[in-house]
Amino acid sequence: MKDEVAKANWFKSSYSQAGQECVEVAFLDGMVGVRDSKDANGPVLVFTPRDWDVFTGGVSGGAFDHPNG
């Protein structure tokens, strides 16, 4: 997996401003990788496609919104 992560095509959200740090995502041989754009050589979180869909659905649905606004 390490070689695949190094060769992956990483991308940021289209909502990210130019020069702004963000998370990056890559599709890795049936998995989804996520890393911090400020540390391209740092740790990578790897999700199954189903877990990624559940997570992004939760984000879109407000499941992680701060309760105070």
Rank of each mutant, 00 (worst) to 15 (best):
V54G: 01
G19A: 10
S13Y: 11
D39R: 13
A18T: 06
S16A: 13
G58L: 01
K2M: 08
Q17P: 06
D29W: 04
D29E: 12
L28F: 05
M1I: 07
F47V: 00
A40T: 14
F47M: 08
M31I: 00
V46S: 07
G42E: 11
K7E: 15
N41M: 12
P67N: 03
E24M: 02
D39S: 13
F11C: 10
D53A: 15
N68I: 04
D65A: 14
A8C: 13
C22A: 11
S16M: 00
G57C: 06
F47N: 02
G42H: 07
S16V: 11
S14F: 09
W52L: 00
S13E: 09
G69F: 01
V46M: 13
S14K: 10
S16D: 03
G62Q: 02
A6L: 13
T56F: 04
A8P: 05
R50G: 14
A40L: 13
R35S: 11
V34C: 03
H66Q: 05
A18M: 08
S37H: 10
C22P: 04
N41Q: 15
V5G: 03
N41C: 11
M31T: 08
G30V: 06
F64K: 06
F55P: 01
K7P: 00
E4I: 15
V23C: 07
N68F: 13
Q17Y: 07
R35L: 12
T56E: 04
A18G: 05
V46F: 07
E24I: 00
D3T: 09
R35G: 05
G69K: 03
D3W: 01
N9E: 15
A8N: 08
T48F: 06
G30M: 09
A6N: 11
V54W: 01
D65T: 05
F64L: 09
S60Y: 08
S14D: 08
M1H: 09
V32D: 00
M1T: 06
V34Q: 02
N68T: 08
R50Q: 15
A40F: 07
E21F: 10
V32S: 03
G19D: 06
A6P: 02
V59P: 06
G62D: 02
A18P: 14
V59Q: 05
F27I: 03
G61V: 00
K38N: 11
A6I: 09
S13L: 09
V54C: 10
G58N: 05
V44P: 00
L45V: 14
F11T: 12
D39A: 14
K38P: 08
A6W: 00
G57R: 02
V32L: 04
E4R: 13
T56K: 08
D29H: 13
D51F: 02
K12Q: 14
T56S: 10
K38M: 11
S16E: 02
K7L: 14
M1D: 07
V5L: 15
D53T: 11
V25L: 10
D39T: 12
